[in-house]
Design a protein around this nucleic acid. Structure first.
Lengths: 337, 337
DNA sequence: CTGAAAGCGCTAACAA
DNA sequence: TTGTTAGCGCTTTCAG
């Protein structure tokens, strides 16, 4: 049997409450006893029982992280960062992949509540599930949102400026001389923000927005290919593409290639996220970089702050994305007349 | 305050033990009372408290999964599969990335014990840490190993036949006409098994093994590039490369390209794992496929079996890998004289 | 500075 | 079929 606080107390010749105090660094305990208790804890390899601690109303030292898909390197990177930052302050993380399914999100949130996690980091962003997030917040469970935002709720968020991201991606293309720029976006808030940035850039260059060049697609390889197909099967395909994440961008590149076109000679492509994928493909992908490691770290910080001091003021941390120019973009093949 | 079993009992006009029995489907309870209790549980949105359940000596319904790196799509896929299969039977998963660091593995195992997980799936494979795994097993915590094996311990494992994997990858290259085939492998047990397969294939074709063509590299892009550099800076570079995972294969492809060579015209490359990366790169990577989804599912099954019936006989599930031929391999450019 | 005792929410004998 | 009761391991007043 694993040693309990009783075993430690007995062996050290003190009461369990003394041990408890030493354990939590609370109350005033004589240096001598303290040392003795620590010694016994080592000897017995004592590990406090988390379940008991949790039951007594304290923390579980577990936090939940809800993402859409672990197979998307962007979310894998976020998760890894969160997990690693959390571990450094002795928190474990339960990672949940919702597969972009609001119902699963609901299930997971329930699971995490049962598990009595001390806080939840939500990085899955649906339009239709804001009520879920609200419910969690109303139950006073600390929450931090990553890469999304719910305007009408007071909640900590860490995100990047998606609008700016879309803007700089599009400007890059415009500066290269492209006029007809297609867009493939995920049907998420942040995706549409990026599209707004795209539109704004076009405005600035006095180029009318052609809505038919904007298509929405789920974030999977298959869906991305389909969307790209739609765009590049037109009689007047765009000369450049802005995809709101790397996965979509790369799926599109495949389709473009299948059609016998070259990247970037015939079509320039810029992605978003700067995941591991971006510099693994050939040509390497020009993309808008999100500081995923930072974002994870920031999220953990905000969450801990909430956990430790219930009534802290809500914050929005907004990081600025950067354009990383690589091989997938270049001037258009032939300038449209 | 969240409703407890007492609230439910009171509102339903029964005792808490009756509620408990209904909750766990134990004992004989009248249909009427049962229905009433269920109804009250809905009304109150009652969620049993996991910590209390855990404390009472039952399961925590949490399991741990230890992997080297979530940024490697292979492990992300494994984790996702485990997590999703676990969830279906109401288990949460704590995912831990050790970053290939045995010390962190030790920390994590400690964390998971404290957390009183019901079982642990270990997919990080070091040579030097078998004692850690042994310790866990001795503490009677259910364990399943994925993609590794510790011959001198009785433990459930699910893995693929790495030897066969290396064999078929190499044979493919040999059949295409390659004679000088380089290898980049991770310094792990499974990596060396794959190399054994490679050697065996060469033997079969009566080609002597040139040890200098076999280099070992950590599984990261940077390390992979370095290893590839070593191989392709030789005066007599190989005409084909077998990398023991996709990440290494793709890093190598980049290096090959940097040197002005073409894949597969000048150098053929075959990878291992068949991760999402393999069909995202261009040319798509010929690779040995590991059924990651299956592996995760099998691992969860084995673990549950152990959890539910302590004294079950240990099993080794060995899956057979398959070669997926794509664009990165072809006949050698010029046949060596 | 240290200890006794009352729970936290739930399960599991044992009674009724 | 249902209820009573004694813990699980720990924290936390409240007394000494």
């Amino acid at each position: 049997m694993k040693p309990t606080i009783y075993d430690v107390a007995e062996r050290a010749g003190v009461s369990i409450s003394t041990v408890s105090k030493v354990l939590n660094g609370r109350g005033k305990i004589g240096e001598a006893t303290k040392a003795r208790i620590f010694k016994v804890m080592k000897e017995l390899q004592y590990q406090p029982n988390n379940a008991a601690m949790a039951l007594t109303g304290k923390s579980t030292y577990v936090l939940g992280i809800v993402i859409p898909d672990l197979n998307n390197p962007f979310f894998a990177a976020i998760s890894k960062s969160v997990e690693s930052n959390a571990r450094q302050v002795h928190y474990s993380s339960i990672i949940c992949s919702t597969d972009y399914n609001p119902q699963r999100e609901e299930e997971y949130l329930g699971l995490l509540k049962r598990q009595m996690v001390d806080g939840i980091i939500i990085a899955s962003g649906f339009q239709e599930d804001t009520h879920l997030v609200k419910m969690v917040i109303e139950e006073e469970i600390p929450v931090v949102l990553i890469a999304r935002d719910i305007p009408d709720i007071l909640v900590d968020t860490v995100s990047i400026d998606d609008f700016i991201g879309g803007l700089i991606a599009t400007k890059h293309l415009l500066e290269l001389g492209h006029q007809r720029i297609g867009v493939i976006t995920e049907p998420l808030k942040c995706g549409w923000e990026r599209v707004r940035g795209y539109q704004s850039a076009l405005h600035e260059w006095s180029i009318p927005v052609d809505e038919s060049l904007i298509v929405s697609s789920e974030s999977s390889i298959e869906a991305g290919r389909e969307a790209a197909n739609k765009l590049f099967s037109r009689v007047d395909p765009p000369t450049a593409l802005f995809a709101t994440n790397d996965l979509l961008a790369i799926s599109a590149i495949q389709v473009i290639r299948d059609k016998g076109l070259h990247v970037p000679e015939d079509v320039s492509v810029v992605g978003f996220d700067n995941t591991i994928l971006a510099h693994l493909v050939n040509p390497a992908l020009t993309t808008v970089s999100q500081p995923m490691t930072d974002m994870g770290a920031q999220a953990v910080n905000l969450l801990l702050e909430q956990i430790r001091n219930k009534e802290h003021t809500r914050k929005r941390v907004i990081l600025i994305p950067e354009l990383v120019v690589r091989g997938s973009t270049g001037p258009p093949h032939k300038v449209p007349q």
